[in-house]
Design a protein around this nucleic acid. Sequence first.
DNA 1: TATTGTTATACTCTATAACTATA
DNA 2: TATAGTTATAGAGTATAACAATA
Lengths: 154, 154
Amino acid sequence: MQTMADECACEVLEVVPLVMRAIRSEMRSHRTPELSVPQFRALAFLGRHEGASLSDVAEHVGLTPPSMSKMVEGLVVRDLVVRQVSPSDRRRVTLTLTARGKSILESAHQGTVAHLTEKLAALSPEERATIVQAMQALRRAFASAKEANTGIVR
Amino acid sequence: MQTMADECACEVLEVVPLVMRAIRSEMRSHRTPELSVPQFRALAFLGRHEGASLSDVAEHVGLTPPSMSKMVEGLVVRDLVVRQVSPSDRRRVTLTLTARGKSILESAHQGTVAHLTEKLAALSPEERATIVQAMQALRRAFASAKEANTGIVR
DNA sequence: TATTGTTATACTCTATAACTATA
DNA sequence: TATAGTTATAGAGTATAACAATA
């Protein structure tokens, strides 16, 4: 069903940047502590993977190690993340959220979800259910092989 | 159904950045003529609205006029866009795609759709149909009142 | 005076290349 | 030699403020 896959791709290409723009602008607004989307994603990853290394986070967020090193430096200065040398392999660093980091991650998440929820309230319950299903499918299609190894064939 | 709207927002917040990353990386790859996502969106808008002013494009893409002015300067230098003073109101500029601009817009669109299609091929036809429906709903929820039609003409 | 666009300036984000420390 | 991370440097991309031209 090649036509359908193409149509689907076109729709995704048109709509995803639109939604992304809303997410970014909310994330950077002053209603919520100011975080860029990659910063938010890095904090969220650390929330789920306590003690991850710099490379782990870089790979998940999709940045090069130097860029991530710089981002982490900023997060450490802002007291959102603790960076420690790993005892077992002194080349590695171990990253964890501070209490403040956890709290700010949570606020940013809440604020953004609230804003999206407001927009989604214009839709019907059935449409929202469809969106949930679609997001789950897209997650399987686009998740990196490492983090969520589902049925992605090559 | 507040819970559902919240769940829906959470899913969107997790998955949309993931898909966006794939779109961006394809857009900037060398398979397709290198364009940033905002550049692509500006060209696509000009494809649909020939002779639009700088402010029109800035508003659609979501940039300030100075930023758009700079972007347009780059597109003019790359021979993708023509910038002319409007005869009726000499403060305005009239922007149009060059033949090269049209062709590069089309290549970028094709290349990105092909890449997305490849990823979506891992899903079932039913799942793709669900995604199409979800995208249509999201478009309604997030499109600016002014320009509901964000599509590319194919 | 108000509007349209540009210039000047500064800051964030990202990359590549070269380096340090450790294994 | 290979790996993990950092530093140095450069280039987009974006914003705000100030300006010029036109209405």
